[in-house]
Amino acid sequence: MSVSKKIVLLGHFGVGKSSLLRRFVENTFSENYTVTIGVHIMKKEVLIGNQPVTLIIWDVEGTDDFTKYRPSYLLGASAFIYVFDASRKVTYSDLSYNLDHLSEKYPHVPVHIIGNKVDLVDVEALQQALNEQNIQADYLSSAKTGENVEQLFTDVAAQMLKNA
């Protein structure tokens, strides 16, 4: 029997949250940027070992201030995926501030940090910039090329299953 888990994608606007979701669920990608307002929800079943897990993924409207997120969106989440844009420093310069807020309000929900759009940057320079800010990204991904997308969602699912 499938277990369902809610994941919420968080981050600044334009970092590629919706693109990651579409790449993962539909295996599609569009260069055009379309703003997400409110919340857009998709689901996909993955198999972790022999266990089917239905991921209900909430792609919520981007913001630079996580204190502004509507609590109802984050309610009942089993994991947060914090997405930043590897090509725009401003989308990860306030990461620790936002992480502090999440750990204070949702202490039991694990946060996975994803640097998206790595196809646009020099990874070595990015790593250096992240190190300077003490940021440890769990994955560097590209919704455009598909790099690490399947992997990160599957790993998050496995982690949730382990924590359940």
């Binding site: 809610k6 307002i37 919340v39 929800i41 109802s72 009942g76």
Partner: peptide, 21 residues
Amino acid sequence: FYSITSLFDQEKASHYFYCVQ
């Protein structure tokens, strides 16, 4: 609707979700 079923057994009686696509 999948996500909200987990709320049914919670004590809080009311939840409001804005702008759901």
